[in-house]
Design a protein around this nucleic acid. Sequence first.
RNA 1: GGUCCCGUAGCCAAGUGGCUAAGGCAAUGGACUGCAACUCCGUGAUCACCGGUUCAAAUCCGGUCGGGACCUCCA
Length: 444
Amino acid sequence: MKIYNTLTNKLETFKPIHKNTVNMYVCGPTVYNYIQIGNARPVIFFDVVRRYFEHLGYTVNFVSNFTDIDDKIITKALEEEKTEMEIANQFIEAFHKDVERVGSSTKYLAPRVTEYMSSIIAYIERLVKKDFAYQIDGDVYFRVSKMKDYGILSGRNVEDLTSGARVEINDKKENPLDFTLWKKTDVGLKFPSPWGEGRPGWHTECVAMIEDIFGGPIDIHGGGADLMFPHHENEIAQNHALNHNFVANYWMHNGFLNINDQKMSKSEGNYIFVKDLDVDYMGFRLFTLSTYYRSPINFTDALLENYITEWQKLKRTYTQAFYKLDLAEQLDESVLPIEAVETIKTNFMAAMDNDFNTANAITELQNIAKYTNQKIRQKDQYSELLAAVKTFETFFAILGLDPKTSRMSKAIKSMYYEWADARKNKEYDKADRLREALSQKGIL
RNA sequence: GGUCCCGUAGCCAAGUGGCUAAGGCAAUGGACUGCAACUCCGUGAUCACCGGUUCAAAUCCGGUCGGGACCUCCA
């Protein structure tokens, strides 16, 4: 299993810290609005990472947080005359719905920042005690100048950053690169701390929660490429200052989902909410997995349509094979290895082992589909079809694609035989009527 | 201004030093079919451009052009 590690910019062999276990953390959303389809990319991709590790036999401890305290939540709460908690709860619920829509699991630990306040405050206190942070007027800042390797993740150095024209001007800071650990708050939700009432800066929550939950460095830390700097860089700076490690052994960053060749983002206004996409979401999932995760994807309606069609083809092939076996009472037979199918499986696993190359894995999905379609038209190829169907199921499980197929009822089976008889007897009116009914039920 | 990424057929996309450059969509020819649908078989590439390194380059190096990202909240 090889993973591209953003920390070293190398493809590395994955070695877990604890045997047969993968501890992973993915930066979750700030819950002030619905997620847009670009936000769904890590939701889908890292779900596939989890599924693949589980397929390989690992126990995966998957954690993804909710930032439920933030300026944007306060703004939204004021706008809608609600409390921050009400806003956060509303969009956490909406997030879970969207995660389910795109076929990812919601069964993972999702800590909320407001539930980990004492850990976060204790974390900041330790940084202050070690002189890596300083307090001014109720704010606490991280002292970047004390961190000699600052910029290791994003490949920047302090001089380049300082010369940048866009560094925020803040007279309180010792250095413009210093970032907020604790922010004095006048309006909205605030918490007591040794520095007065306020709320934590964004960069501390993940690293404090990781320490609290996992008790030390983890295997994989994931998120979108835009989080690399400054968010993940700052996580590393804090944790290196305190614990002399890089938070995670493997850092993984997904590329963006663009629209009209521009980054889709809520602040640009060029976004589509996941909930508003309103298409076959399995097609959307296939679309996002059709490109290697580190490369950008450009979203267009035509391209999405393309993958929805592709998904329907894969699903149709699988279900036809499944029903053919069901009708022949072959679904519960034992599965025999078929050489052509074994080759496809091997190639699929090799693609996944190579840094989760889902694009190549999907090619193997198409290969198993072609093989299946060839066998469907031949007589008595039940062993081949059964092996193919089981392989389909494995691939679908790893990629999180769900054809939602179940065994035929007795009534449907007899309808199917009636249709077959009608065709044989050249009763085409009847046959066409039954064909329509069966195809509406997804059988044909 | 600084840092970095990308440019492969009409479209999407894999491949990142070595046989005739995967795969899908679209197009087109054929097969199958009661008619369809579905499906199967066949058909397509001076790898942005220029120069260099090498026995060998889409792949490495330099340059040109084009597109994009990050340096500010962002997946």
